[in-house]
Write a protein that binds this DNA or RNA. Structure first.
Lengths: 223, 223
DNA sequence: TTGCATTTCAAACATTTGTATGAAACTATC
DNA sequence: GATAGTTTCATACAAATGTTTGAAATGCAA
């Protein structure tokens, strides 16, 4: 056991620096300076720089997934095992948006770190990302319970689009603010969640309508 | 003037390598080896590595924007100055999706390069990205013409979501394929375009309905 | 205290990186 | 064909980076 205060100091310092300055230009020396520990400590406690980053990301991912599942379970229990599609989607995108949007000076280090992750992915993180699929399947299952009769394909697309909208909003909230000259309020987190949820929910219903149309009337455009 | 065949050889080699292996682990030495030129050639012709990357990105961005505007103009001319919202959105997301999706072995180097850009952004590229806003404003204007009476805020969100869905599909098509066990066909490019367009178009109409509701009935959820 | 394991530390290592240099090769103009 | 401008080349430079090392310090149990 012993004092793993060095370990946690490194983790905290690294997360702070990565959150503020990105993965690109934070070196081990920056981290150990911030943490007031010796350069060799990182390799001693984590093995390598990549493993440090990975541990940081895994920790935060687990927290996010746990929060998502907590909301999902709560919603399903409240609905006797079947939550509304809105509630399922809210459980999916809510935690991300709640954590990573809102007034900038109120965002936790953890949130700012996860924003960085979504902006500039780095090899050790990308390797881990693949495990996310099992987690998402639980939401597909919940969506299936929520919308029985819907084709799976539509559920997958709906989930994909919901995540897309949430992710992009987190990633590029600055651009949206600039483009809209402030008219889109990215600090109104709950409003944004509802917006994403309602569009995604609608995508699910639209999808099925679409798939019943003959394909010809869909495609084709001035080219 | 003279022979800028060295220049173009470097550009081609760099784009190929970045497309295949990402920005992270492609060095100048890799590039010059691939291009069969001398190491110093990059600095001689481009000034620095970052300027090489920037030129690559600017070139491809201009091409993309030009294609988007071409489709937009065509659609507006066909509609006597006012295109359908679907056509506007198609012009926005079509080129990206058409270029970056479809059977992997048929994707051009340029397309694969742009996919990389969207996955792992790098400082010189991020700096340029900001200029994209003026380009997007043209689409906002077209959307305004297409849907007079819509509030601007809704248009901004609609465009934002449309790009989000397109980008995420490009960026994470692999995950979607895995998640859906192949049931979502990411090679059906035109189908995906229509899907994104119809969801985004619907988001625009939904948004206005939403904004007329009293805010209280919207938010709030099991927490 | 003694002894053993864990942890810290300063220093060095070994690469890798982008960039600069200065001479050589080439090209085109007069 | 000499000259001036451009381009290529081998090589060196300088800085940064993650990692390793081996000794010193510390903690802890017997």
């Amino acid at each position: 056991m012993a004092s793993d205060q060095t370990r946690t100091a490194i983790l905290a310092a690294a997360e702070r620096l990565y959150a503020d300055r990105g993965f690109g230009d934070v070196t081990l020396r920056d981290i150990v300076a911030e943490a007031n520990v010796n350069l060799a400590a990182v390799n001693y406690h984590f093995g390598s720089k990549d493993e440090l980053i990975a541990e940081l990301f895994v920790t935060r991912s687990i927290q996010l997934n746990r929060e998502r599942l907590r909301l999902l379970q709560a919603a399903e229990e409240a609905g006797d095992g079947r939550a509304s599609i809105d509630a399922v989607l809210r459980a999916l995108v809510g935690p991300t948006l709640r954590g990573c949007l809102g007034p900038e000076n109120q965002r936790s280090t953890a949130a700012r770190f996860m924003i960085r992750v979504s902006i500039e992915s780095v090899p050790p993180i990308r390797r881990i990302r693949n495990r996310e699929i099992d987690h998402l399947r639980k939401f597909i299952a919940a969506m299936r319970r929520s919308l029985p009769g819907h084709s799976d394909v539509e559920l997958y697309w709906g989930l994909h689009f919901a995540l897309a909208m949430a992710q992009q909003t987190v990633r590029d909230s600055e651009r949206l603010t600039k483009l809209s000259e402030g008219k889109c309020d990215v600090d109104d987190v709950e409003g944004i969640i509802e917006r994403v949820v309602s569009v995604a929910a609608m995508a699910l219903t639209v999808g099925d309508a679409r798939s019943k149309l003959p394909p010809r009337v869909l495609a084709r455009d001035a080219r």
